[in-house]
Amino acid sequence: MNANLTSLLNKFQQLNELAPAHQEEILLLLKKLQKDIEILEFKLDRTEKVKQTTAVLLEETIEELQQKSKAVEEVNQALRNSLNDLKNTQNQLIQSEKMAALGELTAGIAHEIQNPLNFVNNFSEINQELVTELIEEVDRQNWEEVRLLVKDLFENEEKIMHHGKRAENIVKSMLQHSRKSNGVAEIFDLNQLVDEYFRLAYHGMRAKDKSFQVKMTTKLDDGLTTVIAVRQDIGRVVLNLITNAFHAIAERIRLNEEGYDPHVLVTTKDQGDQVMVEVTDNGSGMSEQTKDKIFQPFYTTKPAGQGTGLGLSISHDIIKAHGGKFEVQSAVGQGTTFSFIIPKNQNKS
C-alpha cells in the first residue's frame, strides 16, 4: 500500500473512539483509494511509455525528413546544372545558326562590297581628271566650262559618298549579324534594311549556285520612314525569310517544270502603329504537316547537315519579343507567304 495511505490507516486505527464498523468502512475506502492510485500509476506509466515511443518515432521521422530534403536539394542542384548546360548549349546553337547564315552570305557580301568600292574608286579617278581639266579651264577663264566641270565634280562627289556609305552599311550589317544582340531598340529605315538583305541573300545564293535565277520584286511602302526596334534582330528575321524563299525556289527549279518562272516578292506596309513585312515566293510550298512544325526548334526540311532547323524558331522568338506575330500561308507546288507584324515603336508600350 502507498506509504501515505498506510500511515493514514495507522492514524485511524489508533483512534479508539471509532466504532469498528467505521474502521471497517475506512479500511475499505483506503483500499479503494489504493486501487485507484495503482490504476493511475499504471496509466501514467503507460502514457510515459507511449510518450517515449512517440519521441523516438518523431526523432526518426525528423531525421528521415532531413535526409529527404537533402536529396531534394541535390536533385534541384542537378536540375539547375542541367538547365544551365541547356542554356549554354542553346546560346551556342543560336550562335552557330548565326554563323551558318553568315557563312552562306560571305560570297554575296564580298560581291556587294566590291560593287560600291568600284564606284568609289572610279568616281574618285574621274574627279582627279576633272580637277586637272578644271585648272586648265580656270587658266583659260572659260567660265561656262568651269561651271559644268564643277557641277560634275559635285555630283561625282555625291556618288562617292553614297557608295562609301553603302559599303559601310554592308560591313555594319555583317558585323551586327555575327555579334550578340544587345537587345536595344534603335531607330532605322526598315525599307533600306529589307532592300539590303534582299540583295545580300540573292548574291549569297548566286555565289553558291550560279544557275540560280529568280525575278526579284519589292513593294516597299514609301510612307514608311523609320521604325524603332532591335535592328540586328529584325535583320536576321528578314534575312531568314528571304533565304528560305530562295531555297524553296531552288527546290522547285530542280523539278524542271515547263514554263516555271521563279519569283520572290518582298512587301513592306505601314499600318499606323504597326509595320508589316511580307515575303512571298512561288517555290515548292509546304504541306499542312510541315507548316505546323516549322517554328519548332531543330525542325528542318533540308537534308542532314544543311540546315540547323533553328532559323524560323529564332525568328519566331524575335518577333514575339517585339510584341509582334507571324503568319504563314502555303500550298504545295504553288508557293509560300511569310509575314510578320511588329509595333512601329518598341520604346512606346
Partner: peptide, 12 residues
C-alpha cells in the same frame, strides 16, 4: 542592274 553604271560610263 547597278543604276550608277550609267553616270560612270557617261563620265568615263
Amino acid at each position: 542592274d547597278e543604276r550608277d553604271v550609267q553616270v560612270l560610263f557617261e563620265q568615263r
